[in-house]
Amino acid sequence: MTLGNEGVTPFLIIDGHADIPNPLVVTTPGTIDSGTAIDVDLLRAGGVAGVLLAANVVPGEGGAGPASDLAIIDAKIRAIKQMCDVKAHQVALALSADELIRIASEGKTAIMIELLGMHALGSDVKAIERYYRDGVRVLGFAHVGNNAFADSSRPLSSQRPNELGGLSSLGREAVERANDLGLLLDVSHLSSAALFQVLQTSRVPVIASHSGIRTLVEHPRNLSDSELSAIAQAGGVVGIVAFGPYLRNLTPYESKAREAITQAYGGLKEGYAGLSQEQRKAYYEEIIAVTRPASLDDLVRAVDYAVGLIGIDHVSLASDFNQGGGIEGWTRADQAPHVSEALRRHGYSDMDIAKLWGANIVRVLRAAQAGRR
């Protein structure tokens, strides 16, 4: 599927990162996308040719230790596949870059699965192969909190920052297994040391699928200039994410209000441990209510910085929908063309936009798959 104004070179819109709700607690009728920002009907209306959907879980989200967290990951993968089965006339699961292109050419939206965060796997490095067989094609070692494989850029309060020194020996083994399988590695949530060690260990390019620019906004999830440059020098791609706190600096009032809300919910020192699904939803709603959303101009400012530093061939776009993502003008998948329009207003050519929206992601997917043994 292509999208382009009349007389304009068409291109593929590929959202580099979005999430789905926890299917073990969602009670909305229909498939897991129903009623969310990536509802299949919205994907189709927005001309979205592909989306990388994450099966992720925050430590403690399952409420009963790693096994219950792992159950959430498995349920999300099943739910993504069910969505593809039930709505097969509109979407299909892609297991390679070539399949993604083929599915899009058939007028459907291609769905690719990412496993993001491996704490629930314990130290089972062989589980990577199991999830590959289950359809996962993108792998991120850490989400919130350090784990047996890698340090996170946001350790839990009970953990020391950089306590593994980056990657553990298991983490290095996991990089090699991922390379051998042709999995694309996602370094978005890793500590700086872990990110550089993945780059040193991996024999193929990686992606930071949904990140921001630390020079513009000081946040542990944003990437420094040296991290951005290293990813690009290794042939990789950095996805600029439409997540407000990574795109604009909070005002003193917003910071104070958000901290008060967080403290009212126990400080969230151990992820979501101790909070019910209803409390987590209420927490996010209260946080959003006191925070001015970022704008398309904020997004383009971050894109401009990244392109200026590492080049147009190493930058992509991600919504982070259903996990806090969404900015003024791009709050749902059907508004993806608004991003293209904003980029054009800022002087980006259609060839540039084609690279930002999808061509760069396809390139690193192919590079990862070409390294398979």
Rank of each mutant, 00 (worst) to 15 (best):
M1H: 13
G4Y: 05
N5A: 14
E6W: 13
T9W: 10
I13F: 10
D19F: 10
P21K: 09
N22L: 03
S34I: 07
G35Q: 07
A37L: 05
V40F: 02
L43E: 04
V57E: 02
G60S: 01
E61R: 04
G63R: 00
P66C: 04
L70F: 12
I72V: 14
D74F: 00
A75V: 11
I77P: 04
I80G: 01
K81S: 09
K81M: 13
Q82E: 15
M83C: 15
M83F: 07
D85G: 12
V86P: 06
V86T: 15
V91G: 08
A92G: 07
A92T: 01
A97Q: 12
E99N: 06
L100A: 12
L100E: 05
T109I: 12
E114A: 14
L115V: 15
L116W: 06
H119A: 08
E129G: 13
R130D: 12
Y132V: 09
G135N: 10
G135V: 09
V136G: 09
R137Y: 08
V138R: 01
F141R: 01
V144I: 15
N147M: 03
A148W: 05
P155L: 07
P155C: 09
S157R: 14
Q159P: 09
R160C: 09
N162P: 04
E163A: 14
L167H: 12
E173W: 02
R177C: 02
N179M: 06
G182E: 04
G182S: 06
L183W: 02
D186H: 00
S192L: 01
S192C: 03
S192Q: 14
S192M: 05
A194C: 04
A194V: 00
Q200W: 00
V206G: 01
V206E: 05
V206D: 02
S209P: 06
S211L: 00
S211P: 03
I213R: 02
E218H: 13
D225L: 08
A232Q: 10
A232V: 10
G236R: 08
G239R: 06
V241C: 13
A242L: 08
F243M: 11
P245H: 02
L247P: 03
Y253H: 12
S255D: 12
R258C: 06
Y265V: 07
G266E: 07
G267Q: 09
G271A: 10
A273E: 15
L275I: 10
S276V: 01
Q277I: 04
A282Q: 15
Y283P: 02
A289R: 15
A302G: 07
V303D: 05
V303H: 03
Y305D: 02
A306V: 01
I312R: 11
S316C: 12
N322W: 11
G326T: 11
G326L: 08
G329L: 08
W330Q: 04
T331G: 12
T331C: 09
Q335L: 10
P337G: 08
H338N: 15
S340Y: 11
E341T: 14
A342D: 07
L343H: 08
L343K: 06
Y348T: 02
D350M: 06
M351V: 14
D352R: 02
D352N: 13
N360Q: 09
R363M: 08
V364D: 06
